[in-house]
Design a protein around this nucleic acid. Structure first.
Lengths: 418, 418
DNA sequence: CATCTTTGTATATTTAATAAACAAAGTAAA
DNA sequence: TTTACTTTGTTTATTAAATATACAAAGATG
C-alpha cells in the first residue's frame, strides 16, 4: 500500500491529541459484574460447549455466581443451553454455547472495484457470501450509498431473529483512525477523511466498525485462521504491495497514528530499485507479486491469473528462478520483522499465497541462512488459510469481539439490536 | 547487541509454553478495591500533590470512597499528607503524595566490566549513585556474589525507614525471560540460563526484577525522561551495536520470546557489509558508533572517549563527513521502524548521543527526503536525557511500577518490606 | 438399593461501592 | 462583622454483587 503526500493535506492526529485524558480505570460493583459476564462469554466462545460448573472451575467464581450471570446472558439471547453432557460420576452437565440463531453479523470487504459481503451467525459461521461490482469505484459517495443499499437488502432477506443484525464490520485498504473509525486516507482512489462508520451506523441503526484491511485479515487469522493459538502474531499481506497487521497480546496493534504495518516501504537496499513512493530500495519493489510479474516481463494489472503459476508448474526455468528470488526477498524482509517484533508466528496472505509451494522453502532457508544467531527459524511461517475472504471474516471477528468480549458492549449492543 | 548461535544450546521457550493457560479475569469485590486503590496510587504519582476531592473528580469515585481508600494507603505507608493547598472558594484541600521517606528502591545496571547502582526513594528521586568495577567480569557466580554483597552493604548504610528496601531492579544486556526474570543469554560473556532474580530475591528477602538493558532504558525515558507523554515509544540504543526497546500502550513490549528490538541486525543492504553475526548489510554495520569509528580508521575499544567529537568540533572534514553518513544511515533505519511500528515518539540513546548535534539534522532530513509519503517526519526524534544512568533509572521505574501501579502488588510488597 | 458425586439453585452473609446528610474550613459580598 | 455560599472531607444508611452454606436434582457405583 502506498500513501502519497499526506502532509500536503490534513495531518493525522496523534494519539495524545485524540485521548484528551486517559480515563482512569475505576468502578463500582456493576463493573465487576460486567467484567465477570464478559469473561464468561469469552470462555463460552472459546470452550463451547461448556457447563456452568466447568465455567465456575475455570474462573474461580462460585457456581451460584456463574448461574446468576449465565441466566442474564441467556436473557440477553447471547447464550443458549444446547444440550446435556456426559456425566463424570454425578449429575449430567447442561451445556452452554453462544446462541448462534439469536442474530447476525455482516462483514464487508471494500476492494478496489468490487466488494465482498459475508453474513454470519453469532458464532461466526458464514451463512451467506456474495460479491458485487462497485457501480462507481472512484466515487466515495456512490460507493457508500451502494453499501447501505446492499446492507438493507441483505438484512431484509434474513430470517427473523431475536437480535437481528447486531453489527456490521467494514474493511478497506487505507488508513483508519481508531476508535472513531474515520477513514483518513484510501490510496487506491485518493479518498480522504470519510466518516463511513458514523454514516453507516446512522443509516442502518446498528453498531458499525471500520478498520484497515490487513488488520482485519490479521484478526481473522488469529481468531479463526492459521494462528489461533498465537498471542503475538505477524500477518504479512503480499499482493501489489506489502502491508502487515499485528496482533499483540491477543489484540490488534495499530501504532500511535494507525499506520503501523506499512512495511512495504521499509528499505532493504540503500540505493536499490526506485519505488512508486519516491524512495529507493523498498521491500515491496523486490518481494511483491508485482515485482515478481515485472521480473518476468509481465505487465501487472491484477488480478494476475495463474500465468506465472502455470509456467512454474511446467518447470520453466525463468519462472522458477524469479520465484526463488522472490522467496529470498520475502525471507529477508520477514527476517527483519522477526528481529524487530519477535512474533510468535507469521502468517503470509494476499495474492502471493498462490505460489506458496515455491516460496516457502526458499523463505525458510533464507531466514535460516541469514539469521543464524537467534532462533528466528523457530518462528513458524504459514500461509493464509482464509484466502480472499480473510478481511471480511476479520470484520465479522471484530464485531463479535466487540459484542462478546468487550466488557459492557454486549449489554448495549443487545439493547440496540434490531 | 549480538546473539550467537543460540540454537546450538538451549531453546527459548515460547510464550505459549510458559503460560499454561491464560488466567481469566474475574473477581469479587476485593478485586474492585484493589483496582481502585491501584488507580488512586497511579493518579497520586502522576498528579502529585493532589487532594482527595480532586482524586474523586478524576476517578468518578465518591469522596467517601476515596477517603476510605486513601486512609488504607496511608496506613500502608505508601501515601502521605504533605501539605495544604490553596482554596478555590471553600475549605482548603489536604494534599497527598507518595510517601517518599517510607522506603527505598535500588536500581542496578550490570555492564560489561562494571556496575552502576542507584538508590532512590519511593518517588524515584535518586539518593545515592555509585559504580563499582566487577571483580571477575566473566564469572557469573562471582558477579552475582558481588551484587548481593553490594546490595547488603548499601542497605545497611541506609537510614531506617518503615518499609526499608521495597524492591531491587537489575538491568543487563541480554535476553531475559518474563515474567520469570530468568536470564537466558548474555552475549558479552556468553552466559546462559541464570536465575539471578530468584537467587537475589532469596538472598535479600525483597522482590527483585531482572530485565533487558534497552527495555529498562526505554521505560526510564517514558517514565522520567524525554518521552513522558508518549504511550507508544520507540527507544533506540546506539553504541557498539544497535538495540531497541518499545513502550506499547504505556507498557514494555517484549515480543513472544523476549527478543523484540534486535533491530541492529535487520538488513538495510542486501549484499552489504559483512557483520560479526555472519550476515551482510546489517543496520549496525552502518549506523553504530563502532561503524563510525571504523569509518574514520579508528580501532573501536569502548569507551571511545571524545576523539571523534573533538575532530568534528574542530571542523575536520573527514569526521564531519563520517558523521553525516552515520546520520543518513540512522535516519534510514529509524524510518524503517517508523513504518513498521508507527511510534508516537523516538528517543535515541547510547554512546552515539554524544554526537547528537551533528547527527540529528541529517537524520531528520533523511527521513523527510526518503519517506515523503507518510507524515513520518511528524514523529518527534529526541536524544536521551538520561545518559549513562538510563538503565539503572529504568530499573527503579520498573520496581516502582510494580509496587505502585500493579493491582495487588502494593499490599504484598508493603507487607514483605524490611 | 444405599451411598457417593456432580450439577445447579436458594438463602444468609460479607464486602465495597453509592447516596445523602453533615461538619469543618474556607471565600466573598452586604 | 455577619451572612450566605463553596469546597473538602467524614459519617451513616443503602445497594449491588460477590461468597459461603445448605440443599435438591440427577446420575454413577459397588
Amino acid at each position: 500500500m502506498i500513501i502519497y503526500l499526506f502532509h500536503k493535506h490534513r495531518q493525522i492526529p496523534s494519539r495524545t491529541e485524540l485521548e484528551h485524558e486517559k480515563e482512569p480505570m475505576t468502578g463500582d460493583s456493576s463493573l465487576l459484574k460486567t467484567l465477570n459476564k464478559s469473561t464468561l462469554l469469552r470462555l463460552i466462545r472459546r470452550h463451547a460447549p461448556i457447563s456452568r460448573a466447568d465455567l465456575a472451575k475455570r474462573t474461580h467464581l462460585t457456581r451460584a455466581t456463574v448461574s446468576a450471570l449465565v441466566e442474564e446472558l441467556i436473557g440477553q439471547r447471547l447464550v443458549a443451553e444446547t444440550g446435556i453432557g456426559a456425566s463424570s460420576g454425578g449429575r449430567k452437565p447442561v451445556l452452554l454455547q453462544i446462541d448462534a440463531e439469536a442474530g447476525y453479523v455482516i462483514g464487508l470487504d471494500v476492494r478496489r472495484n468490487d466488494l465482498l459481503a459475508i453474513v454470519a451467525d453469532l458464532r461466526g459461521n458464514a451463512l451467506r457470501e456474495l460479491s458485487r461490482k462497485l457501480d462507481a469505484p472512484s466515487d466515495p459517495e456512490r460507493t457508500l450509498s451502494q453499501l447501505i443499499a446492499l446492507m438493507r437488502e441483505l438484512r431484509s432477506e434474513l430470517p427473523d431473529s431475536p437480535l437481528g443484525v447486531v453489527g456490521v464490520g467494514v474493511g478497506i485498504a487505507g488508513l483508519v483512525e481508531q476508535p472513531s473509525g474515520r477513514i483518513l486516507f484510501v490510496p487506491a482512489h485518493d479518498w480522504r477523511l470519510l466518516d463511513w462508520r458514523e454514516r453507516l451506523a446512522e443509516a442502518l441503526g446498528v453498531p458499525v466498525i471500520v478498520e484497515n484491511e490487513a488488520n482485519l485479515a490479521a484478526l481473522a487469522e488469529h481468531d479463526v485462521g492459521a494462528a489461533q493459538h498465537a498471542t503475538e502474531l505477524l500477518y504479512v499481506s503480499v499482493s501489489a504491495g506489502i502491508g502487515a497487521g499485528y496482533i499483540v497480546g491477543g489484540e490488534l496493534y495499530r501504532g500511535a497514528g494507525g499506520y503501523a504495518g506499512e512495511v512495504g516501504h521499509t528499505t532493504i537496499e540503500l540505493n536499490g530499485r526506485p519505488c512508486s513512493c519516491g524512495n529507493r530500495g523498498c521491500w515491496e519493489t523486490y518481494a511483491s507479486e508485482q515485482a515478481l510479474a515485472e521480473a518476468l516481463g509481465l505487465a501487472y494489472d491484477p488480478p494476475l491469473g495463474s500465468a506465472i503459476a502455470e509456467r512454474a508448474a511446467s518447470g520453466e526455468a525463468s519462472a522458477l528462478a524469479a520465484l526463488e528470488r522472490t522467496g529470498v526477498y520475502l525471507g529477508i524482509g520477514i527476517g527483519n520483522m522477526i528481529h524487530t517484533l519477535n512474533p510468535q508466528m507469521i502468517v503470509v496472505g494476499g495474492a502471493i499465497s498462490r505460489y506458496r509451494d515455491w516460496l516457502l522453502p526458499k523463505m525458510e532457508a533464507t531466514i535460516r541462512a541469514r539469521f543464524p544467531y537467534i532462533p528466528a527459524f523457530e518462528v513458524p511461517i504459514r500461509f493464509s488459510e482464509l484466502g480472499e475472504t480473510a478481511t471480511a471474516q476479520g470484520a465479522i471477528a471484530y464485531v463479535l469481539r466487540e459484542l462478546l468480549e468487550k466488557p459492557g458492549a454486549s449489554a448495549s449492543a443487545a439493547a440496540t439490536g434490531v
